[in-house]
Design a protein around this nucleic acid. Structure first.
Lengths: 210, 210
DNA sequence: GTTTAATTTAAACGATTGTTTAATTTTGCG
DNA sequence: CGCAAAATTAAACAATCGTTTAAATTAAAC
């Protein structure tokens, strides 16, 4: 399409198709031939652009990793927000992010569960640990100032992300619980998104506020 | 070992080794040769006993699926327990189960995330959906009787299981958050188990009780 | 237009996958 | 023991895997 940057377009196109396939079939379950066919390129192009299948995966993570950090840093630095307002903002941005890129976050969750690719496994954990420490900091500040109850900060964040991941794990499961047809996409439903946001906020407020 | 039931012993031995390997490397990441070597049997034995790699997987799920249902049915039928006491009992049995067989539950979580093996995917979802409906029933009963606040029943259960799954996703992540060494096993730590139990119960109580 | 580099291709690489075969060993039973 | 069934083995099966190669095509630069 863009004659000045043809290689970037193809790279991005490959990355996007790979995210979809990895989310659907997992890392090992996705073959380079599947990916190449779906993306409409030769099978040698993946290694030509990325060097290997695993490096393609790392390229995907690297492309996505920075965004959530930026959003978090913005909220953390905002001095106009109270602790609970910061938590609410973080919850909202996580839900927005996870819903918009739910297939990608399924890939991340898979790598969290599998430890065969050591380097990738630890990279993803480090990203998550850093986010956890930031949120834990907010909660601890709220506890020290007497605004929050004395909860378990790390596990409180685990509950927020865990609830989201649980819902994102399987669209088919969501549909069965909501009596929707099999091919329905619950992550495109703004009502469902609102419902999840309300629940997580209520949960955190009930847990933290006196 | 047991000369009267040698085939059952080997079957069980294969299943146990397969659970460990699948949890560590995933379904596709585990080869039958790996499994056979680890279990000390010939590679043809897996197909001899189970018919195929996928049927071995289904045998694993079938073996484990019944237990949690039995525990749930016991709690549901216990008329001496109030709604919140039933929820507490369910939380405790889930944590006990997930901690004792954390590798197995990682395998289940992986299959929940990957939809390439349709039949297995749906089998696991149906198991989960049934458990969800039971717990939702308890919560709705508590709401109708005025004991519970008007929460979202399905998502409340998602938060319980989601928190547990989040913690179970990666032992390495737990260790990093608790400043433990890499090779430490957090799921063998009774203090950590107690900590998680306390948190989830506090969360559910704060969310439900007035 | 020619040349050089970047891109794309088809084909083949060796390795590994799940599975099957057919021969062999072990076991249970009369 | 002798015989039949079950269990186990080594070997090979076809298929697929990620990756590489070397030739062909396209694009860019002079």
């Amino acid at each position: 399409m863009n004659p000045t940057q043809p290689q970037i377009d193809k790279r991005d196109h490959l990355i996007n198709e790979a995210i979809e396939l990895f989310a659907e079939k997992g890392f090992e379950g996705t073959s380079i031939r599947d990916l190449a066919t779906r993306a409409g390129v030769n099978i040698a192009m993946v290694n030509y652009y990325f060097g290997s299948k695993e490096k393609l995966f790392e390229a995907i993570v690297a492309k996505k990793a920075t965004h959530m950090r930026g959003v978090l840093d913005m909220i953390l630095a905002d001095k106009a927000l109270s602790e609970i307002e910061k938590l609410d903002a973080i919850i909202e941005s996580y839900i927005a992010r996870f819903f918009a890129y739910h297939t990608f976050h399924r890939v991340l969750q898979q790598e969290l569960l599998v430890s065969s690719r050591d380097h990738m496994h630890e990279t993803i954990i480090d990203l998550f640990v850093r986010n956890t420490r930031d949120v834990v900091g907010i909660i601890q500040k709220g506890i020290k100032s007497g605004k929050f109850k004395k909860v378990d900060p790390e596990l409180t964040f685990a509950s927020i992300i865990g609830t989201l991941n649980q819902v994102l794990s399987s669209g088919l499961m969501c549909n069965k619980l909501m009596n929707k047809p099999k091919n329905y996409n619950p992550y495109d439903n703004p009502q469902f998104k609102k419902r999840l946001t309300t629940h997580i906020k209520c949960m955190v407020h009930a847990l933290l506020l006196k």
